[in-house]
Design a protein around this nucleic acid. Sequence first.
DNA 1: ACTTGGTTCAAACGTTCGTTTAAATCATAT
DNA 2: ATATGATTTAAACGAACGTTTGAACCAAGT
Lengths: 238, 238
Amino acid sequence: MSEARATTDTRERILDAAERLFMESGYEGTSMRMITGAAGVNLAAVNYHFGSKEALLREVFRRRLAWLNKERLRLLDDMEAQAKGEPLKPSAILEAFFGTLLHMGTDESLGGMTFLRLLGRTLTEPADFIRTFFAGEYAEVVDRYKRALFRALPDVPHEEIIWRFHLMLGAMSYAIAGTDALQVVTGCELDLKNEGPQAAELLSARVMPFLLGGLRAPLPQFVTKQEQQHQSEPDKAA
Amino acid sequence: MSEARATTDTRERILDAAERLFMESGYEGTSMRMITGAAGVNLAAVNYHFGSKEALLREVFRRRLAWLNKERLRLLDDMEAQAKGEPLKPSAILEAFFGTLLHMGTDESLGGMTFLRLLGRTLTEPADFIRTFFAGEYAEVVDRYKRALFRALPDVPHEEIIWRFHLMLGAMSYAIAGTDALQVVTGCELDLKNEGPQAAELLSARVMPFLLGGLRAPLPQFVTKQEQQHQSEPDKAA
DNA sequence: ACTTGGTTCAAACGTTCGTTTAAATCATAT
DNA sequence: ATATGATTTAAACGAACGTTTGAACCAAGT
């Protein structure tokens, strides 16, 4: 009846191995034999402890997203309490949402860069059960942050805010996930995975200005019918 | 010896079916039997006409990327010829690079939205042969556009431009690929796949301002050591 | 000492995978 | 008509897949 020590050892060895292998080879590209081999446990251990390969993937994410979701909600709650009813600054909202994510990359006990890259890559996995799972895991947090952005940008149509939220998620995911997928396309070392804990801070410094710039960009012409010219003149980065 | 008509029929039926199925289920998640079944051809036809499943994927992309690469280079050549040695405007460069891509979404003979979404999703596939393939296919075009951006933004460090190029690619890929992956996360219909030809123009109007805003955002503080304050004040979209 | 319940183990399960084979079929040229 | 080379076909290949089984093992409680 009591929890034997070897039990949690085996479970966590499997979760760690699966986290790394799913990141490197994707869900379909990773076999149970690869996972149990890397974890140094018996092939049947995954089905015994988790039930199935699908359930294993869900647990890999659940143990990390539990912290991420809680922290994101806590930060938003704190900021809203301190603002006493006033709308938050968009930059503060983004800092809370994406900064929390990037912080996980600096802390090995939260999964480190391995989990960050896994998360970025898995968001595009086409398998139905994965999409369903993420929808459930993200629903509450995304809804809260969406509403905070609505209040922070009262003059911007909600649909436009959702689009830009979407685009920011995409840019951030690629910045993390595609580190070697697209750096070979861009043909330049983007020096991420060798930096260890500082990697996430470098990432943050590079990505956050980009996201804010995108979020605050002029609205598309068909949204603001008036004054549709002269708004994209200064063709220069600061 | 002569090219029988049925030959190109079978080849193209396979390519069309594979394009759609790879988009819906990913490379590993799509079996040869799914492809040949959907195409209405014999199971052995893929290996006969293309050699292997990997070679089929490469051909699926090659027939589309041939046009895309040529068009992107042609537009850049035209603009540079017209500029007579002057640097191009960043917005014109982005319009050529991403506008060409989005144009494919409006033209069914270029693959339409199916290919666009396939492209966006496949950039994150972890399989080695896919990454190698894309690196080769994209190398020339990315290098040319990278250099055009360097000239267009002479005050921005090259590394920063590459990063933002990377981020723009990510945002664009997600905007296209994630239409149902992340719209379920953001919890809102992003009305894309039901729009047909207009979808790409809607996408363009929404995404291009975001990309330009990101590209022209203030540089991160550790790059411009001087005047690191007061540059992120106007917390409002236009 | 013996039972008990949780855990590990080697082995096998049936299925599906990508690929190959050899015969059948088709279109064309002589 | 008949030979020829390209294409299609049904069937099978060995390998790898996720999962299941039943015995072995181990650390408790009595």
